[in-house]
Design a protein around this nucleic acid. Sequence first.
DNA 1: ACCGGGAATTGAAGCGCTTCGACAGATGTA
DNA 2: TACATCTGTCGAAGCGCTTCAATTCCCGGT
Lengths: 347, 347
Amino acid sequence: MVTLAEVARHAGVSASTVSYVLSGKRTISRPTRERVERSIRELGYLPNAGARALASSRSNVIALMMPLRTDMYVPVMMDIALAVATTAREHEQDVLLLTGQEGPAAVRRVVGSGLADAMILMDVELHDARLPLLHESPRPAVLIGLPADTTGLTCVDLDFAATGRLCVEHLAELGHREVALVGEAAAVYERHTGFAERTIAGVRERASELGVRVLHRPCEGSYEAMAGTLSRILQERPGTSGFIVQNESVLGPMLSLLRQQGRAVPEDASIVAICPDEVATQGSVALTSVAIPAREMGRRAVELVMPKVEAAGRNGNGRPVPDRVELLPPRLTVRASTGPAPAAGRP
Amino acid sequence: MVTLAEVARHAGVSASTVSYVLSGKRTISRPTRERVERSIRELGYLPNAGARALASSRSNVIALMMPLRTDMYVPVMMDIALAVATTAREHEQDVLLLTGQEGPAAVRRVVGSGLADAMILMDVELHDARLPLLHESPRPAVLIGLPADTTGLTCVDLDFAATGRLCVEHLAELGHREVALVGEAAAVYERHTGFAERTIAGVRERASELGVRVLHRPCEGSYEAMAGTLSRILQERPGTSGFIVQNESVLGPMLSLLRQQGRAVPEDASIVAICPDEVATQGSVALTSVAIPAREMGRRAVELVMPKVEAAGRNGNGRPVPDRVELLPPRLTVRASTGPAPAAGRP
DNA sequence: ACCGGGAATTGAAGCGCTTCGACAGATGTA
DNA sequence: TACATCTGTCGAAGCGCTTCAATTCCCGGT
């Protein structure tokens, strides 16, 4: 492997000069800079990551902690991860992939060893076990998702409460008075994952303001589960004409089931999905939906964490970047799955 | 941050002794070892990754290069990635996430900078642009997927040719004489992704041996695309009674469509899917399928690469670990979507 | 002709760890 | 008793880079 010293010799300058050419932290005269750059190119020099990390106490790596479980939103997780990786590269950072498996220990390990300069955590629970460590940690972190208490934390997420409200509003405007929220798998609620609970809260809040009745039912991601959930909903509330579906994997089954039962979409039943746009448009009916801005979330997470890394990097003398919670506003796209409530459903 | 030297002082030994306790590369007497371990615990010492990498020229990081595109098998990719991460941790390694975005340059960068000790590449094309670099590279690599020429490469993949054969065999045994292969999106074939082409080859080969007629049609991942593909297949070959489906995202639409057209599964049409088991079991009909062993692939990739890393690490004096191509044998699980061919389809 | 000051460059001191050779002391061998 | 062997520990060199303080050089001002 070519080293800095070899480049310096080849270019006829000192090692520090090469270093400054690379980092741009000091002015280097044009001719010298060009000579050094030429040597770098000719020798195919690449700086050694370990040495750089040791000398500068910056690894230029961001750790991304993903959930190991795959009971929800797999494509969303994937999109977030890829967006994080892509955006990180735009900031000359690499991404270290951690799984939830190791839990808080992973945070400690990565932070303590200087393997990464910062962390991005996904799948945050309301009372996440990793939070105490983050508070003590000297390294910046950004959460994708919202815990119960966000003081001292920087977070990005879709505004799921607003999302819930928006869905209800849309249905209410169309005249629906009885709405069912088909939620995530029960396990998701049992873990107290914030987004699921915030969605319910938003739905309930706006519904009560608008005089809409709401029934919330969790639902596993299979055809049978959906069949059961649907029949139970309709049994309990036969007048239900609007559905808000948060578990993307039952959208297909749901459409099949409604069709089988002779309920036309949107004539007899309207559906608003909370899912990525690709999912909304690839079924037999293009679904009215609130998009989950996965890429945006991944991107913002990196963009929020970078200034903190840089502030911490200047031997801590850059004053700290303030924490903030960034809730992305939901956007509802009307497609073919929502329409006026059937006459029977009206007063 | 606590350093090795501080641990040494605290334990009343030299730095090298602490280092040897940590690595186990020299014998340390029991009392000394315990004293050091205690100091490590009490001080909460974590070795600095950069310093370690610099001194040992081992980063204990494996780079995983994922495709950026998401036009196929997203959950499979995700499972592979998570399995890689999990298995890597069992070997005390971390995983660096790279996207296909940067292409071959990423390989160069990571390998050249010593950021990672080894690479695992996913989504390998038949004539992958990254291969030449791998051949020159001093660092070991494992491919998940098969390029056209595997000399000097270590690869893991499902044996898709055997998978194709197995699907045909199963349908042929049930008496089906006309079979359609519903393939991946056209773009996948245009990229010359090995697995898709190998599946076709396997299907064709066994079909011709068994006197089964095969029609292969690519299919995008949407309901409309599936509708079009299905009607074209049935128009061209009205006698088609068996379907092999490789694009997992059209399985739902396909079942809906067949039902709509009054074709019962499996009475009128049999379906063999090539997809993860979770997908096969969560639709309205449990599908006979060949599983894509995503986790296994991720796990094996790590297990194949580790010995190479270790051999390379012993300052290259461990003799090189031989390359090998590991094709995982397909397993077909019979579920509810395949049955005897309808009478009309028989001689 | 002299000096102050900025611009460009360099030397040297680490960053925290691994590892090699050396060494003291205990143990075995003749 | 003298010598070779092991075992357990240590000192010091060095991995490749960053960065600070110091140095050189050149310029304009007086």
